[in-house]
Write a protein that binds this DNA or RNA. Structure first.
Lengths: 229, 229
DNA sequence: TGTTTTCGATCTTGA
DNA sequence: TCAAGATCGAAAACA
């Protein structure tokens, strides 16, 4: 599956002038696209959403109150959010915000909202963090999007059995029986109700449900309650 | 955990020589006790467990492999864990660990294990972070979703469900079924094995485990490595 | 009805 | 924190 697929990163177009994009593009296994994101600045692997803020931006957004709106949106995103704080202590000597205020905000973000906070010294390091974090998440959570748990068995026959178990009324036993008799997922899908009933343990009831599930109906799609950004 | 405004902090005795304890004791609304903790360095309000590490300790424990054992124990603690990293960049110029290795570890800790990481410049700031964090958590306690871990729901029925989920084999669904049928925690606790089995999803096995758990036996409690006082 | 299988819920573990 | 796998009990489905 995704063993050595490139990491796809979508960068928000408002980050276009940031150096981070340049550094990301220079990395060998990353492909960067630019587009408008509803929330966050970088969407990696369709899984992690990074919000990058310089220390100054951070301080300012505390003052003007923008911060917690953004954080709250991040926290409710369907992607796993990460905040990258960029800059060193020196960078915020100018604006008058107190260190305590920043720390208070950081406590809220990481403890209350549960959003991980990473620190970078400069745009180059931000890019590196995005890269590492994505790789680590990938290493754990297998390949691509999580359709059914995100996990897919690797051998073909396991995979076939796995697919079949998604059918209504079919568990490991009947999946095996089906596969033994029909030989392939494709043949099973296109089998008639009568043919299906030849299998041990499959009666009219289950056979009908399978055909029902497999026979695509337009109306079934169109709305799903998985909310978008 | 009532209206007592004082925060109670239990400090691990191995932190005894650390300045943090002194700073905590100097804070007006904090009372510090010293004792041996199974995990972590500071237990605040019976709710948050802080692991404090200087940057050097952190670097060293990456190298010698201790780090992830500790982190894993922290993550499985019944309290909400927080890692405090103490020190400035200068402090780790000496040991040869590479910045990338530290960042990789931080990514794992905060992203994978979900443990918030806070930064302090010195022991005084560590103490302040412990204080602030505890106050903030207190302010919202009961609001957020939570696994059992010191956040106690406020309404009676929530609290009852919460208690029931501590029983073996009982999760949210069965907790609700039990409460619907018996009406009170007390009745459930004193119900017979046969009565318990009347509930959907509870068979002989779980019923027996519940009675076993509820029927106190002196011998069962020799040592509890989760929490010592 | 009895037997087998699926399925939902919980727990455990590991990263 | 989070996801995968194992386990147990209930209930569906078949015969």
């Amino acid at each position: 599956m995704n063993k050595t697929t490139k990491i796809t990163i979508i960068a928000d177009d408002r980050e276009r002038q940031s150096q981070v994009i340049g550094f990301l593009s220079d990395m060998p296994d990353i492909s960067v696209q630019i587009s408008r994101l509803a929330t966050g600045d970088y969407l990696a692997d369709n899984r992690l959403i990074f919000e990058r803020k310089t220390l100054n931006d951070f301080a300012i957004s505390i003052i003007d109150g923008r911060l917690f709106k953004q954080i709250s949106r991040l926290a409710n995103s369907r992607y796993k959010p990460v905040l990258i704080l960029e800059g060193t202590g020196r960078d915020l000597s100018e604006n008058g915000i107190r260190r305590e205020a920043m720390q208070g905000a950081l406590i809220s973000i990481s403890l209350i909202y549960g959003i991980p906070v990473l620190r970078a010294m400069n745009p180059h390091e931000s890019a590196r963090l995005i890269n590492y974090a994505t790789l680590q998440i990938r290493a754990i959570a297998g390949g691509g999007l999580s359709n059914r748990g995100g996990y897919h068995p690797k051998t073909k026959s396991k995979r076939q059995l796995f697919i079949l178990q998604g059918l209504p009324g079919i568990g490991p036993k009947k999946a095996k029986n089906l596969l033994d008799r029909f030989g392939s997922v494709e043949k099973i899908i296109s089998a008639s109700i009568e043919e299906l009933q030849l299998i041990d343990g499959i009666g009219k009831n289950i056979a009908e449900k399978i055909k029902w599930a497999v026979h695509e109906e337009k109306a079934a799609y169109g709305f799903n309650d998985d909310f978008d950004i």
